[in-house]
Design a protein around this nucleic acid. Structure first.
Length: 783
DNA sequence: GATCCTCGAGTTCA
DNA sequence: CTCGAGGATC
């Protein structure tokens, strides 16, 4: 045998140095040389091997990427099946797991080897004489696919084991995953190059391994952690799992640095919460942690149930994002007729609950996401509460799936679904002829913050409305016990259900008595609730409250011409017109008459706030009327010559010019006045104006509280009182309680589990009160 | 006309 | 909680 040539020596040396560098980088996580130097070594090796093809060996670092793409993947039987693990989601389930082991083994506080559960792909690697010979996916656990060529491209997987004391045959198992940074970088590049974007790191890893061409896999930034062994021949392993992992590490396999050995159930739960806290900052996705009884003797004794070991369990985090299938899109019709598309999903666990529906907000949102029925979608619970669709997974799209279209007819009443120019929402045009809108109106009327009819839930509303007992919201107050019982009988008959009266033998009337009592109780109410309950467009709680405070009397409000609503702060043209429009409809006036006639009593009627007079004169009213071309200046000019409604109506057009108006303005005004509607509106405006101006200015209620002029925001859960109570108490002290934090916010009261609003407050440097401080403040000021 | 703030409306599940 | 849009303000 000839002495090795200088080239052969250099080749050996290069391979050694490259392998060492890889080991330091992937296993010890302690890079020894800069990337550039590493690349230089690899290039030198490549060129030497090109000069001496006879010296190329299969385990050379240059041979990670094979050449020939294979047609399909061969099947590989796992001699020892790759098991699945049982799952635990709660502390109790973990405690049960630990207790079963204690009981069966008759030992207290056993030791566990614990590790993060990576969200990747389980694989098996076979080494013969220290050389990587075959790799396979887990498949169904018994049989997987031979993906050796692809696995060879993953630099964290050694082609040659290190050291010397390895078994003749060793099967190493672990997880192939895609680090988050690599995933992000890959996708950014893919977007730029117009390439295929990966849905998430897990899919990225799985998809990459199933590439037929290893050159493609080599471009994907995959990594690997070992966590178990399969077949071992020709050597003994240490007696515990943790020692085996240490051994694997010596042999050149990456093992997670987060692995630990803990004792007893307490140790397990402590590890779980510790990893949970780090989860966000880890460089890879994990979906939980895995607990394994550390000693092999104990493992053997525990054995298996069906296909899962009884000595190991996966403790899963509640998943925050999940993929599922969009089975359909339903249309829901709201109180205002808004047609909201709702996603019907294949049920899936997200953050601890099973989600089956998710709002899609509106048609624009669907177009933006480009979701189609049958798509695989990623679902998340926004703010950990409300499920939403984050995006679709384009890979799983049926290429023939049509784009989704908003239906043109209401699914409930068949009326056209239309969209106002420039608006995002589509609405059913059926108004109160639409059963869905009627029901929603009733539901709103009866709701807690409106008339607060306790016990009038979805079910009753449905039946009462369908069977025509409630044609308008005023009909609540003519319902009698017999009506309810009759309604129930007809509903049972219709549904074919056996009435409880038959089963029990006596007439069940308690529920009906309760409901009648609740309706009766709701008769006594406040103006603010009453206005809110009417369901006027754009009038929510706070506008209803403002209207009640400023005008004080439903008798006044219901006949006020719309421009006067603009006197109320935060009410502009749009809202004022909506209020006026509501009261202009005879049907609505009839409902109010009925309500009052049937005993609804508003207890806090009072005189209008004299401040309404401030700055209110005939000229400002003319401006508020929004007459074309009538600006503040023109209105003031007009008011000089025509100080009241009658004078204006009697005046011939040319008099407007004499009054100082430009010709065109005068024509516009005259044309406006010709419309009878306008003239009537002006007339009513004059009356109301006179009425308001005759108000006796009340002594300035020098209101005060210690929180005058301050704006508070409540967030999180308070323990001593409800949010509503806290709001009422703060308002009683003069504060305004708003819903969102801005730089105008004076202070934020943060209860338990405060979320984004607290973050925002911190960001803006807004003062933050905890509950104790709130309570102390309230106590001090007699709250 | 742009910008900031607030309100209204719609929503899920146990 | 989030989105869209109305109102106020400069």
């Amino acid at each position: 045998m000839a002495k090795p040539s200088p080239s052969a020596q250099r080749i050996d040396q290069l391979r050694q140095r490259i392998d060492d560098a890889n080991y330091r980088y992937y296993v010890l996580d302690d890079p020894s040389i800069p990337d550039a130097e590493f690349d230089a070594l690899l290039r030198e090796l490549q060129s030497l091997e090109a000069e001496h093809p006879e010296l190329v060996t299969p385990d050379s670092p240059t041979q990670r990427v094979g050449i020939a793409p294979t047609g399909t993947f061969a099947q590989v039987r796992h001699a020892i099946p790759m098991l699945s693990l049982g799952n635990a989601f709660t502390d109790e389930e973990v405690a049960d797991f630990e207790r079963r082991i204690e009981e069966k083994l008759g030992r207290r506080a056993p030791k566990f080897s614990v590790e993060p559960k990576l969200d990747g792909l389980a694989i098996s690697l076979r080494y013969e004489d220290g050389r990587f010979v075959q790799g396979a996916t887990r498949g169904d656990g018994a049989t997987g696919e031979d993906v050796t060529a692809n696995l060879r491209t993953i630099k964290a997987i050694p082609l040659q084991m290190r050291g010397k004391d390895w078994p003749a045959v060793l099967e190493v198992r672990g997880e192939v995953y895609m680090p988050l940074a690599a995933f992000k970088a890959y996708n950014e590049r893919a977007v730029k190059d117009g390439g295929k974007v990966l849905a998430n790191p897990r899919n990225g890893a799985a998809g990459s391994l199933r590439q037929l061409d290893p050159r493609v896999t080599a471009q994907r930034p995959l990594a690997f952690y070992a966590y178990a062994v399969g077949i071992v021949e020709g050597a003994e392993l240490p007696p515990t799992h943790s020692q085996t992992l240490a051994k694997l590490r010596d042999w050149g396999f990456p093992v997670s640095a987060l692995n630990e050995v803990v004792v007893g159930a307490e140790g397990l739960l402590g590890y779980y919460s510790g990893i949970g806290k780090q989860r966000e900052s880890l460089p890879f996705d994990i979906d939980g942690v895995v607990y394994k009884l550390d000693d092999y003797e104990g493992q053997r004794e525990m054995g298996f149930v069906s296909r899962a070991p009884r000595w190991a369990i996966a403790h899963k985090f509640p998943a925050q994002e999940q993929s599922t299938v969009l089975e359909g899109i339903d249309i829901q019709i709201g109180r205002t007729g808004a047609a909201t598309p709702v996603a019907r999903l294949k049920p899936v666990q997200v953050a601890g609950v099973v989600v089956t529906n998710a709002t899609l907000h509106n048609a624009d949102q669907i177009a933006r996401l480009d979701v189609r029925i049958g798509d695989t979608v990623i679902v998340r619970r926004a703010g950990d509460v409300i499920p939403e669709i984050v995006r679709v997974v384009p890979e799983y799209r049926d290429p023939h799936a049509p784009e989704w279209q908003m239906p043109t007819q209401c699914p409930v009443c068949g009326s056209d679904i239309v969209r106002e120019e420039g608006e995002a929402v589509w609405r059913c045009s059926g108004e109160l002829t639409c059963a869905a809108q009627r029901k929603e109106a009733i539901r709103h009327f009866a709701s807690r913050r409106a008339m607060d009819i306790e016990g009038l839930g979805e079910r009753f509303i449905e039946d009462l409305s369908d069977l025509d007992y409630l044609k308008s919201v005023a009909d609540h107050y003519k319902l009698e016990l017999d009506d309810l019982l009759e309604m129930k009988r007809r509903a049972d008959e219709r549904d074919g259900t056996t009435p409880e009266t038959v089963k029990s033998g006596k007439v069940a009337t308690k529920w009906a008595e309760n409901l009648i009592a609740a309706i009766d109780h709701s008769r006594t109410t406040t103006l603010e609730r009453f206005l809110y309950a009417l369901g006027i467009e754009h009038v929510g709680e706070s506008t209803a409250k403002a209207l009640a405070n400023w005008f004080g009397d439903i008798a006044l409000i219901r006949r006020l011409p719309w421009p006067l609503f603009k006197r109320v702060p935060d009410v502009g043209g749009e809202v004022a017109r909506a209020i006026g429009h509501f009261f202009d409809q005879p049907g609505n006036q009839q409902v109010i008459d009925d309500l009052l006639a049937r005993g609804v009593a508003i207890t806090d009627t009072h005189a209008p706030n004299p401040k309404l007079r401030d700055g209110l004169d005939f000229a400002t009213m003319l401006v508020d009327l929004e007459i074309p071309k009538i600006t503040k200046i023109r209105a003031e000019q007009l008011a000089v010559s025509f100080p009241n409604v009658q004078a204006l109506l009697d005046a011939p057009q040319h008099n407007f010019v004499t009054a100082g108006l430009p010709n065109e303005t005068a024509i516009a005004l005259a044309q406006w006045l010709e419309d009878e509607e306008h003239a009537r509106l002006l007339g009513r405006g004059g009356e109301s104006l006179a009425m308001l101006q005759s108000l006796t200015p009340a002594a300035e209620t020098a209101a005060s509280g210690p929180l005058d002029g301050q704006t508070a925001v409540l967030t999180g859960t308070l323990t001593a009182m409800s949010r509503d109570e806290a709001k009422a108490k703060l308002e009683a002290l003069g504060a305004k309680v708003a819903g969102s934090v801005s730089k105008k916010t004076s202070f934020v009261v943060a209860g338990e589990a405060a979320g984004s609003k607290l973050d925002k407050a911190t960001e803006l440097g807004v003062e933050i009160w905890d509950e104790a401080r709130l309570l102390a403040f309230l106590a001090q000021h007699g709250g």
